[in-house]
Write a protein that binds this DNA or RNA. Structure first.
Length: 494
RNA sequence: GGCGCGUUGGAGAAGCGGCUGAACUCACCAGCCUUUCACGCUGGCAUUCAUGGGUUCGAAUCCCAUACGCGUCACCA
């Protein structure tokens, strides 16, 4: 049992699953899976004010959507339940009682104002703010008296002075802190709810957690937790603190990833049309680097490849361009069926097809998605591209200039296409290709001379997706309209 | 301010004292392929690893300072 890998993801349900949280979850998940261990999920909802059911559901949904199913924990059960901290209060109470009895913890009756003032004074003197120890040695009688006055005390841990706590971190190596910089901190709030740092220790211990992988922002919490482990005589898990995810703001400054860097929640990316496997792949690359040249990994491959010693100490920067690239790669390789499933909602939302698409609309959607799959990096771009091609176009002088060289051929091709189109009832990739072939044969024009003028006439651009694919987007009517208009403009050109 | 962590090209990021090509990816540029463009493929893209000192026969890699950046110092997690 001692060597069993038991890793956990323990979010607090105070908001949707954040990109950083998803990455922490992923690393824990991967290390567990790599070693044939257990991945569990626990809800840290001791912040009564901010915790919501809605957030909890969002987190669970997002995690499942990404493919990280947990073997034990909330909703699925297990031997170490319950898996929601507010349901584990008796467990914490036992531990607190134990510490109180042995004198390793004590009641503190100081008011918040008192504490705030103390802190301010220490700060102004340039000291590390910490509890001065006023209630440290209150007698039983003094405590009773204060209790009788109706003051609700907090419980503080008696932190040994003058000691050095060394964390042997799996990614950062040895990191040490002085207990003198910590001070007697609160482990139970005045409402009787234990504080995060205390509850985690009890939970991780009773759940048999072997490795704790979490964000670097927790590094300075770790010495506190270690002091608790020691006070309780618990064996400590291995710790691994992974670097923060940074975002670049408008002025190019790097700071911890937050709202102002764009979307931070997993659902937001889902709604923009990112594939779960692409997000997982991208997240894995944030702070972890594979040994070889491969960049694209499935979850199963990651389970094989992942290891903590390839996790970087320096912060990872969230690079949306890279995410888009990865997503584009997955889109190109996805099956037509899956593409349709993911793409359809975006077409519906844009009003390009109805809520209950007809067979014709479905066929059109399939064709459009297939036509554009090499050109999009996420599904939200699908309607954008379609609308772009359907919008009014202006022919720029530069583009017109590019047609000068093949003026004569262009005119022949354009007219031929117009005529053929008029006789063709509907346009598909194949029928359009056929038209082109006929024109090529009849006019003996080929290559750039054949394609360029048509592209310009239809899109106003010099490059883009295949013309047969664009034809589907535009449809017969629009193409004819543009062709007619363009031929007129073109003929006027000297 | 105390404590902690980090600093490699336009961007992400390998490298952990001696395979002097500082990998790989994105972006960019050039060429090839394709009856056009794109996709794809091939090639180019840091005499240099924040700066200054040291240690060493040898340092991006170890040590010390400096600078800059970030995190954290809650009855939030």
């Amino acid at each position: 049992m001692a060597n069993d890998y038991r890793l956990r993801f323990a979010p607090s349900p105070t908001g949707p699953l954040h990109i950083g949280g998803a990455r922490s979850a992923l690393f824990n998940y991967l290390l567990a899976k790599k070693n044939g261990g257990t991945f569990l999920m626990r809800m840290e909802d001791t912040d009564l004010e901010r915790s919501t059911k809605e957030s909890e559901e969002n987190i669970k949904d997002s995690l499942r959507w990404l493919g990280m199913d947990w073997d034990e924990g909330i909703d699925v059960g297990g031997d170490c339940g319950p898996y929601r901290q507010t349901e584990r209060l008796p467990l914490y109470q036992d531990a607190v009682d134990k510490l109180l009895e042995t004198g390793k913890a004590y009641y503190c009756f100081c008011s918040e104002e008192e504490l705030a003032q103390e802190k301010e004074e220490q700060l102004s003197r340039g000291e590390t703010p910490r509890y001065g120890g006023k209630c440290r040695d209150l007698s039983k009688e003094q405590q009773q008296a204060l209790l009788a006055k109706g003051i609700k005390p907090v419980v503080r841990l008696r932190v040994p002075a003058g000691e050095t706590v060394v964390i042997d971190d799996e990614v950062r190596g040895e990191v040490s802190f002085e207990t003198d910089g910590i001070g007697d901190f609160i482990i139970v709030k005045s409402d009787g709810i234990p504080v995060y740092n205390f509850a985690v220790v009890i939970d991780d211990h009773t759940m048999g957690i072997s490795h704790v992988i979490r964000g670097e922002e927790h590094l300075s919490n770790t010495p506190r937790q270690i002091v608790i482990y020691d006070a309780l005589g618990y064996e400590k898990p291995r710790f691994a603190h992974i670097s923060l995810i940074l975002g670049r703001d408008d002025v190019g400054k790097l700071t911890k990833m937050s709202k102002r860097h764009g979307s931070t929640s997993v659902v937001a990316y889902k709604e923009q049309g990112f594939l779960p496997e692409a997000i997982v792949n991208f997240l894995a690359l944030l702070g972890w680097a594979p040994g070889g040249e491969q960049e694209l990994f499935t979850l199963d491959e990651l389970k094989q490849e992942f290891s903590l010693d390839r996790v970087s100490k320096s912060p990872a920067v969230f690079d949306l361009e890279k995410l888009k690239w990865i997503n584009g790669m997955y889109i190109r390789n996805a099956s037509g069926e899956r593409l349709l499933r993911y793409g359809l909602p975006f077409l519906k939302k844009a009003g390009l097809i109805g809520e209950e698409p007809t067979t014709e609309e479905m066929i059109w959607a399939m064709r459009v998605i297939d036509a554009l799959k090499n050109h999009i990096s996420c599904f939200a771009e699908l309607p954008e591209i379609i609308e772009k091609y359907r919008a009014e176009i202006a022919y720029s002088p530069e583009v017109m200039e590019s047609l000068k060289e093949c003026r004569e051929e262009a005119l022949i091709v354009l007219k031929a296409m117009k005529e053929k189109l008029e006789k063709t009832p509907s346009i598909t990739v194949d029928s359009y290709k056929k038209l082109l072939k006929e024109i090529a044969k009849e006019t003996e024009i080929k290559g750039r001379n054949l394609y360029h003028s048509l592209r310009v006439a239809k899109t106003g651009e010099e490059q883009g997706p295949d013309l047969d694919k664009i034809s589907i987007i535009l449809g017969r009517e629009l193409m004819l309209k543009r062709l007619n208009a363009f031929i007129k403009i073109f003929q006027r050109m000297a």
